[in-house]
């Protein structure tokens, strides 16, 4: 069936079967392969994307359920000119090992920091508990997210 939604600011229309998950639609139909597929049943967090601004697991959403929605993937959180503050923080803290979980970590952290730029370490850990890093590099990931908080605060509140 035909399906229209917005991905990273662009309106797209694709033809999908109802059984196709949103993550498969993004990767296979739209070639947005930055979003990774890990477990395909909602425990690993690798496929996290932003749906109408909220972090969700794209393997637990049917593509057809996203009709009319605004989607942002990891590709939409980067640009060709320079690293974003969140990307730069991940680099600075060596928060990337094999990189498989990284798109899900970045999208989740972006959603969290956009809503809660003053969150503490406990909150970051609680939110990232839904994202599995099998290199077990969690400490540097939590540090990278905490260090990126200032970039998400409104300018007048920055020290």
């Amino acid at each position: 069936m035909p399906l229209s939604f917005e991905v990273n600011g662009k309106q797209v229309t694709v033809e999908v079967e109802p059984r196709m998950t949103l993550v498969d639609c993004l990767r296979h139909k739209l070639r947005l392969t930055g979003t990774h597929v890990g477990c395909e049943h909602g425990v690993c967090g690798a496929c996290t994307i932003l749906l109408d601004g909220e972090a969700v697991r794209a393997c637990l959403i049917l593509a057809v359920q996203a009709e009319g929605c605004k989607i942002v993937t990891i590709e939409g959180l980067s640009n060709d000119e320079a690293l974003t503050p969140l990307q730069a923080s991940f680099r600075r803290h060596h928060a990337v090992q094999c990189g498989f979980c990284t798109p899900g970590m970045i999208t989740t952290a972006h959603a969290l920091l956009s809503e809660e730029p003053d969150c503490d370490a406990d909150r970051v850990r609680e939110v990232l508990s839904g994202n599995i890093c099998r290199c077990t590099g969690y400490i540097s990931i939590v540090e990278a997210v905490l260090d990126a908080r200032s970039a998400y605060r409104p300018p007048e509140s920055q020290p």
């Binding site: 909602g42 967090g45 996290t48 749906l51 909220e54 972090a55 969700v56 697991r57 637990l60 959403i61 989740t108 959603a111 969290l112 609680e126 939110v127 508990s129 839904g130």
Partner: peptide
């Protein structure tokens, strides 16, 4: 209940 992303859905 579950994790951050699941609580959004």
């Amino acid at each position: 209940v579950a994790h951050y992303q699941i609580r959004n859905r």
